[in-house]
């Protein structure tokens, strides 16, 4: 049974300069304890997707489609009902721990605050729970009495993760948890993410770190210009990517050749007809500029949005 089903989700932002079509027709599924990596670059809409699931988008956002979480359409909930889901059912670990943590509160206080939300726990028990959570993410006891600026970048990231785990959510979403970390810290955080998610909860990893995605996720969705262009099992997708964008993205990675994709991602205010990757695509055919490619299941559970793969 699926934990999360997203159907034809579209998000746009009407701004004075024009409407930004941040997400268009995104459909994804996530099973219980399944782990999904959302791969995409700046402006692909991957963070907007996380914001839409948690309903944390700015007020002017126009959201259409359905997001079913264990039989409830999250988009139909009242704000108060939605609030109950956040943290306890679905938790978000924000990007950039340096600014996501409150600088004037100690680490322990921030964790306790998250644990004690809605008085689920007697205060007496909270102390033990805080210590347990800090230990879980590999932080020393002194972190409880330290302020965020007294902790290193890696420790701040751990603290932020412990906040996400505070209410033992069924689904954890992490936005770029390895961004800006150097190699040894990065592998530590990836290992920690593995420890706190594998076989315990569903997990959505938003990242452009291909190595982390491959290690942590069973399923991968690649986003480009607000659309999912390729979606399938991680093994399949990494061993044989089908969509030209995915291939280009992989090839531009330093470890895989540092070969660039020509051109730039489209501006999301003025989208023309046809495939959104077509202007940069080396294999484009006349049909690509004329018609939007359908999102087609080419083998069981493997979807691609490309005319070339459609027969």
């Amino acid at each position: 049974m699926s934990l999360l089903v997203i159907r034809e989700l579209s998000v746009d932002f009407p701004l004075p300069e024009g409407t930004v079509y941040a997400l268009s027709g995104v459909s994804l599924e996530l099973g219980e304890e399944e782990r999904l990596a959302l791969i995409g670059e700046t402006g692909s809409g991957k963070s907007v997707l996380a914001g839409a699931i948690l309903r944390l988008l700015p007020a002017q956002a126009r959201v259409r489609g359905e997001i079913w979480y264990r039989g409830t359409n999250l988009l139909a909930l009242s704000p108060e009902e939605m609030r109950r889901f956040r943290g306890s059912e679905i938790a978000l670990v924000m990007q950039n721990p340096a600014s996501a943590l409150n600088p004037v509160l100690t680490g322990g206080y921030q964790v306790r605050e998250a644990v004690l939300r809605r008085g689920r726990l007697a205060k007496r028990l909270a102390q033990g729970k805080v210590a347990e959570l800090l230990a879980r993410v590999g932080l020393p006891e002194r972190a409880a009495s330290s302020y965020p600026h007294q902790l290193s970048g890696g420790m701040q990231q751990r603290l932020l993760l412990s906040l996400g785990l505070a209410l033992a959510p069924r689904l954890l979403i992490a936005d770029e948890p390895t961004k800006g970390l150097d190699w040894s810290l990065r592998s530590q955080i990836v290992q920690l993410l593995q420890d706190i998610t594998a076989g315990q909860r569903a997990f959505i990893l938003i990242t452009h770190d291909l190595a982390a995605a491959r290690y942590l996720a069973e399923r991968v969705a690649v986003l480009y210009a607000g659309q999912v262009v390729e979606y399938g099992l991680a093994e399949d997708l990494f061993s044989l990517p089908r969509h030209p964008y995915t291939r280009g993205l992989f090839a531009s990675h330093p470890a895989r050749g540092l070969k660039p994709i020509p051109g730039m991602a489209p501006v999301l205010t003025s989208l023309s007809r046809g495939c959104r990757f077509q202007p940069r695509c080396g294999q484009a055919r006349p049909v690509c500029a004329r018609e939007d490619p359908p999102f087609v299941e080419i083998s069981e559970g493997y979807f691609v949005r490309c005319h070339r793969c459609f027969r």
Binding site: G180, H208, L210, S252, H253, L258
Partner: peptide, 14 residues
Amino acid sequence: TSALDVSVQAQVFQ
């Protein structure tokens, strides 16, 4: 290029 996307990084290095 550490503030840039991977595909842009590849363009800059090219």
